[in-house]
Amino acid sequence: MLEFVSRNITCSVRTSMIDKVCIFENISLSSSSIRHISSNSTNTTNHQAFTVSYLINSCGLSPKSALAASKDVQFDAQHKPDVVLGFLKNRGFSKAQIFNIVKGYPGVLLTNPDKTLLPKLEFLQSKGVSSPDIAKIISSHPWTLQRRHCFVPIFYFFKNLLQSDDTTIKVFKRYPGLLGLDLEIVTSMLDILRDTGVPESNLPMLARCYPLTMMLTVEKFKKHVEELRAMDFDTSTSRFILAMNVLCLTSRVKWERKLDAYRDWGLSHEEILAAFRKYPYFMTASEYKIMKVMCLFVNKLGWEPSFIAKHPSLMLYSVEKTLIPRASVLEFLVSRGLIEKSFRSYEFFQSPENKFLQNVISSCAYSTELLQLYREKQNLSRCKGI
């Protein structure tokens, strides 16, 4: 019995000793891991500190911008970033342009400029883009440099649509961000338009005049197409392309506010959509502009709100330079009994300046007085700097 107890006690002691050894081994391993992690953390901190210092001293970034950039790119030596900065400087990029590039795409400092940057610049140059224009294009949208491929595929995609190198170059100068488009995504967008009934002849209009539409996601692009179809837009007309651009550039919040602004003046939802279908720019006017135009025609002239809906292009004329001066002429003519108060004419406001002066003012018996009034109203807008 005593022997059994003794063996159990011995076994328990041995087991306890083994457990303690295991515990101490685990503690030792954990300490090693901690030292390793601590070392990595220190290295990371050192790299980030060096990066921040370099971005501030060599690239001109503010401490805040440098710290933010260091989260995306880090280095512990200046050789590689120095090579990139030297490359850009030798290619004609100014300090301000290099600053914009590094701030917008700090990862450029870790690239091999001869392999990743040079092919892009040389391609643009081969298409007739001058060095100063290349610098402007790249520095205004540095994120396009992240694309692994050169600009060749997207350039030729647009050229096939526009049938001209010169026109394609003009588009890229106006919208440099297009160089970073994903060719597969853009192709999908055009296929959506074709499937919707947009004729092939109208597609170049999208690329030439409204290319920002092509910078949306496919899902959002498709959603806008469906929205326009729900509004009974004729997909075969160029107005459909124009309306796509208006929708793409107008947030949902602003769109709803503009609808409310027109409704506040008595226009029905259908009248607003009819005006939009007729002249898509109708929905680009700001809420303030809507108020000013409607106030002039409805409150001052006493015309029906529906007149604006039937002639939506009036919403884009300058209130101060065109609409108010001509409204003053109209009020003068009505006050002299030369025009009936019930007079309603779209042409009165939209006719070119020379024709308005000849047909309305010069032909009037009060031409001198009328011209003085007209010029005073126009000069008033110039004095206000409008």
Results as ranks from 00 to 15, higher is better:
277 R>A: 09
278 K>W: 02
279 Y>N: 07
279 Y>L: 03
280 P>G: 01
280 P>A: 03
280 P>N: 06
280 P>Q: 07
282 F>A: 10
282 F>R: 06
282 F>W: 07
284 T>S: 13
284 T>Q: 15
284 T>G: 04
284 T>P: 01
285 A>L: 01
285 A>Y: 02
286 S>W: 10
286 S>Y: 12
287 E>P: 01
287 E>K: 08
287 E>V: 14
287 E>I: 12
288 Y>E: 04
289 K>T: 14
289 K>P: 08
290 I>T: 10
291 M>I: 09
291 M>D: 14
291 M>C: 11
291 M>W: 09
292 K>M: 14
292 K>T: 14
292 K>P: 05
292 K>N: 15
293 V>A: 03
293 V>I: 10
294 M>A: 03
294 M>K: 00
294 M>H: 03
294 M>P: 00
295 C>N: 10
295 C>D: 11
296 L>F: 09
296 L>E: 05
296 L>N: 05
298 V>D: 06
298 V>E: 03
299 N>C: 13
299 N>L: 12
300 K>V: 08
300 K>E: 12
300 K>G: 00
301 L>C: 08
301 L>F: 08
301 L>R: 09
302 G>A: 05
302 G>I: 10
303 W>I: 10
305 P>V: 01
305 P>W: 02
306 S>Q: 10
306 S>E: 12
307 F>W: 11
309 A>G: 05
309 A>S: 11
312 P>N: 08
314 L>T: 09
314 L>C: 12
316 L>C: 12
316 L>Y: 10
316 L>E: 14
317 Y>I: 00
317 Y>D: 13
317 Y>R: 03
318 S>E: 02
318 S>W: 03
319 V>E: 09
319 V>C: 09
319 V>R: 02
319 V>H: 12
319 V>F: 12
320 E>F: 09
320 E>I: 02
321 K>W: 05
321 K>M: 07
321 K>S: 08
322 T>K: 06
322 T>R: 05
323 L>R: 01
324 I>W: 05
324 I>H: 04
325 P>G: 04
325 P>T: 00
325 P>N: 03
326 R>Y: 04
326 R>G: 03
326 R>L: 07
327 A>F: 05
327 A>T: 04
329 V>A: 02
329 V>H: 00
329 V>D: 01
330 L>E: 04
331 E>L: 02
332 F>V: 00
332 F>Y: 06
332 F>P: 00
332 F>D: 00
333 L>C: 10
333 L>S: 06
334 V>L: 03
334 V>S: 01
335 S>G: 06
336 R>P: 10
337 G>A: 05
337 G>C: 09
338 L>I: 01
339 I>Q: 12
344 R>E: 14
346 Y>V: 04
346 Y>H: 15
347 E>D: 15
348 F>K: 07
350 Q>R: 15
350 Q>H: 15
351 S>T: 13
351 S>P: 02
351 S>W: 12
352 P>M: 07
352 P>W: 09
353 E>K: 14
353 E>G: 05
354 N>H: 09
354 N>R: 04
355 K>D: 15
355 K>R: 15
356 F>D: 13
356 F>V: 13
356 F>Y: 13
356 F>L: 13
